[in-house]
Write a protein that binds this DNA or RNA. Sequence first.
DNA 1: CGCGAGGGC
Length: 773
Amino acid sequence: MTMSVPQKRKHMLSVDFKQRSGSSKRHKEHGHSHQHKKPRYVDAPDEEQSPRKSATELNGTTPQKLVNGYKVPKPHGHNNLNRINGVGESSRSKNFRSNSSTDLQLQEQRKQLPIAKGRDALVAEIGKHDVTVLLGETGSGKTTQVPQYLLENGVAGKGMIAVTQPRRVAATSLADRVSKEQGASVGDIVGYSVRFDEKYTSGTRIKYMTDGMIVRELMSDPLLSKYSVVIVDEAHERTLRTDLLIANLKTIQKKRNSTLDPKGKGNADKMNPLKVIIMSATLDAEKFSKFFHNAKIIYVKGRQHPVTIYHSSESQVDYVDAAMRTFFQVHVDQPPGDVLIFLPGEYEPHFIRVPELKNALGQEDIESLEKSITFFAKRLPADKMDVLILPMYASQSAHKNTKVFESAPSNTRKCILATNVAETSITIPGVKYVIDTGKCKEKQYLARDSGGGFDTLLTRDITKSSAMQRAGRAGREGKGVCFRLYTEQAFESMKRTAEPEILRCSLTSSILQLKCIGQNMEELDLMDKPDIDAIYSALKTLWLLGAIDKEQKLTSTGRRMASFPTEPHLSRSILASSEHNCTKEILTIVSILSSSSKLFLDISDQREAASDSRRKFRHPSGDHMTILNTFRSYEEVSKSESKSQRKEWCKKHFINEKCLIEGKKIREQLIDVCKKVGLDPNSSCGENEDPVIKSLGYGLVGNSAFLQPDGSYKQTMGHSIVKIHPGSCMVNEKVPAIIYDELVYTNQIYARGVSAIPRSFFLKHAALSQRQA
DNA sequence: CGCGAGGGC
């Protein structure tokens, strides 16, 4: 404790932040160059101009300079758009906190939302047009209010209003909030529908749902006839499912909204027209509008506290080190308020940052930053606040993540080290300062014409829209500050928005789904069309799985596969399991593989202890049977032990209970689907692993590799040398042939989820494929 | 002797 701040100086040079350049550039930040049709205001013109707040002078000796204030996001440059104004204070978009408000207070809050002032004009505009693009800033209230306005004003007719969301939590919590505003319980007037969970009745008029859910509904109701309005929220995120939905909405409208069908006869569906509302953040409205034949764009002002933005004056090569130094600049000089640091990932090969910790440190981002900050925080003068460091990433155990939401003791400053989860999925209360490294990890699927392909996971620069979103996280509860560890120039050269997911992921699953409603992806009117090679690669995979025939027609196998909510190769394994009497076992393995979290968590400094402990569940045939063993042991423990003992057991064995709990839910769902398609979910092979491996083989036939004379593995389809992933229990094994769940390209091409399979399996399978074709 | 964004059915 005798070592004081100078300690900081010794090792840390301050990061120099630079003043933003003039307001013209800030207009650019908004990313707009609209030449939109009719400049017209729906309500009174907005008086508010660029908020030029003089930010608080930073104390102390840090060389930071002060800059123009900055509101995120800003409506500048939108004069040519229709605009609905609003006033008021404090609103949160999707994470609602207390529900102690009385009905009256709720109604009052509704009226105070920025969007409320323009209600009549908004309803009128939406009533007039088949498609409306609603540009809404954070905090405008559009997602909660627009559906209610349409319902209350009779715009929805007799049908339901669907509001789609990319994330489950958003759908359920929105339904919760809007139900309260309607003075009803969830599932009555307002309901929701997400995987594993739905609450709605025949009387439900507003349904919040995930985009994946409505895409699946397309398979049973291709015209979405239950709905009179579909509101696509967060459309700018351009998830695969949102893009598929938007393409279908366009064709559905052609059928439902025209008075004459293509044959010139009266169209029966015209009695049931469909209204579409696209809700998006500000950057991509024009594109949505063009896609829907220049649909009306309406702008809704939001409400967000001002966030002052600093850019570093030089680019930071070692952004983790820069993040640490910036944190201490904030901690020493700035008033209380929690700090949120955005990093690309938990781990990243990097520099050794603290010489004293050279041996203790791995080469990781979140983990090493945690240690570095702890190291220096201990050496601060006693009058400084304590520092509580909290890592936050989705794959981390749920328990650890909850600590992030708890408020820290009064003399403690929370410092949250987060990945992209904190950008959209979760909102952390108390954050006043954001430190943005400008980096994120992004998965990109590289399709191969041999069928299949592999994922790459690379650290990249974020987009402008992402940078704005991150900065906005500092202004949720009051004025905030965002420190960007990149120059203003670097910001300007960032891409505006991310590539749509449809251009970056495997299309196998979507193409199969589309086949079920008689559509071919290459003919679909999509906002962005995927590369034709990516489509061929997926078709080849589907053919290999027996889901389509040589003429690319859906087979009965394909139709049955599509009824499972799993990746096609796993669906195929389930079907195969019924012929090998091991559906029970395969369902368990597939459930765990389909879970969003990992079964085995890796903590770098305990990695060896973890793998030792797991050895108990290890099966010589590989990772798939190991999963089965682990699940079985957990079930055994669950029979006799309490919830907390179960938890303890998982912790002791370095098992992620989150994965098991979700896996069990998925398993239940898969059992239901099995019953529907006539598979016996209880057929079991007992302890014999052969049938299990064979069944997996039918699904993973494209994901296989043979051992080469030199000891490496080479793909059976494709030409790449693949290495067994270090996390696999097969990592040091040399077997004649392997199957694997997926390939990930990082430094090399790694096969994850590996099991040994007899070479002879492939000969038999090839013969089978020939016969099918 | 490496690996390691975030979502969804």
